[in-house]
Amino acid sequence: MRNYVRCALLATSTLVATVVAAAGPAKPQKRTNFSPIVDTRGDISFPARFPEGYQHIGTWAVLGAEGVADTHNVYARPKDVIYFRKNGRFPDGAVIIKEVLEAIGSGHTTGKAYWGERGKTWFVMVKDTHGRFTTNPLWGDGWGWAQFDPKDRSRQIATNYKTDCLQCHVPAREMDWIYVYAYPALGEKALRFTPEAARTGGLKAGEGHRVAVADDASSGTSTTAEQRKVLAGKQLFDSACMACHSIKAGEHGIGPSLFGVIGRMAGSAPGYAYSDAMRNAGVTWITENMVKHLMDTRGFIPGNRMGSMFKGVSTSNDGDSIAAYLATLK
């Protein structure tokens, strides 16, 4: 019986050729022995019966310009939690799941409160202590990495863990790429990694908060409108941007260093692994373009990674203030 070969371009931009016999569809790949959600090619599936068989281990609240922008709920299997509490590391085949929700908030008797509402994405990591899938670009550094469409969890959308996933985990390299200190269920062996700044309160006076910038009457000095804009921009940057971006030359984190960014071509800072969308955008970061990007992080340069993590500032004045502050970093 004649076979037909057809090629489909998946949403992950990976070209996959599948041979389909006229007698029926091809059989699915077998699962591996070490993980029921990983097939023999290393493709990771979202656990079909989640949240059954998983426990919540911790939640992140990620700040935006006007409060909490996202909540990140993290889950693991109870047996993996028990193993970590005993050994201080995750066992082979351990599964970590993170649900990212867009946060909303309102006034409550306890004050302004925020909670997750609309799903933004899902991440799944599978521990691999044996380096099993050396030719699969979603495996490396001891883990399998996957990201799933929030509206269709059967659709895996990451293409390469180094460009799509790893950058967000660089500060946690000493913790096997997982920010274990944020997950109380993992016990003392995880909490010992808590950053000193967090233990001591971290922020200096005036940092990380939207406070009014006024003239310093006590010293007899005054600030210009441009100086006030720069100061406001720094405060916005500290609360909304600093978690991902450094202001030191060449010091990249989740995002690239923003030292000298104004006047620079998008996607051109040496040493940072940009997405194809950013690297090929052809955009120069003049003030006008920076404000447009900050106002519409998903739409100004479609497909860039920042758009999936930060929805942008709420007003053009905020964007203009941040751009004014960035212009001083040189």
Rank of each mutant, 00 (worst) to 15 (best):
Ala269Lys: 09
Lys292Phe: 00
Asn87Met: 03
Tyr325Pro: 00
Met290Pro: 10
Val95His: 06
Ala146Val: 02
Phe133Leu: 01
Thr135Asp: 14
Val19Leu: 12
Arg2Gln: 14
Lys30Asn: 06
Arg41Ala: 15
Thr284Gln: 04
Asp92Tyr: 07
Asp216Ile: 09
Leu166Asn: 07
Asp70Cys: 01
Val124Ala: 09
His252Lys: 06
Tyr274Gly: 00
Ser45His: 07
Ala158Thr: 02
Met175Ile: 03
Trp143Thr: 03
Gly93Leu: 05
Ala158Gln: 03
His245Arg: 10
Ile322Cys: 06
Asp238Cys: 03
Lys234Gly: 14
Ala21Glu: 14
Val211Asn: 12
Ala281Ser: 14
Leu15Tyr: 08
Lys120Cys: 05
Leu203Pro: 08
Ala103Leu: 01
His108Trp: 11
Asp276Thr: 13
Phe259Arg: 03
Met125Ser: 14
Thr224Asp: 02
Lys248Tyr: 10
Thr12Gly: 15
Leu191Ser: 11
Asp164Asn: 14
Ser222Phe: 15
Ala21Lys: 14
Asn304Trp: 11
Asn33Phe: 05
Val5Lys: 13
His169Met: 02
Arg228Glu: 09
Pro47Gly: 02
Pro47Lys: 05
Thr110Ser: 13
Ile104Gln: 10
Pro51Gln: 01
Gln55Leu: 04
Tyr274Gln: 07
Gly111Asn: 06
Ile57Cys: 09
Lys248Asn: 14
Thr110Gln: 12
Phe237Ile: 00
Thr14Lys: 12
Phe84Thr: 12
Pro195Ala: 15
Pro25Trp: 12
Leu10Phe: 02
Pro256Gln: 04
Val38Leu: 00
Leu166Arg: 10
Ser308Asp: 05
Val283His: 06
Phe84Leu: 10
Asp92Arg: 01
Arg298Met: 13
Ala243His: 11
Tyr274Pro: 01
Leu329Glu: 02
Gly208Cys: 06
His209Ser: 11
His169Lys: 00
Asn280Thr: 14
Pro36Ile: 00
Glu251Trp: 09
Cys244Ala: 01
Lys234Pro: 03
Gly42Gln: 05
Val180Gln: 03
Ser239Val: 09
Gly250Ala: 15
Tyr114Cys: 05
Ser13Val: 05
Ser219Trp: 09
Ala324Leu: 03
Gly307Ser: 02
Arg173Gln: 04
Val95Arg: 04
Glu117Lys: 11
Asn87Lys: 09
Phe133Cys: 02
Thr328His: 07
Ala269Phe: 00
Glu117Trp: 11
Trp139Gly: 01
Gly88Cys: 08
Ala281Val: 00
Ile286Leu: 07
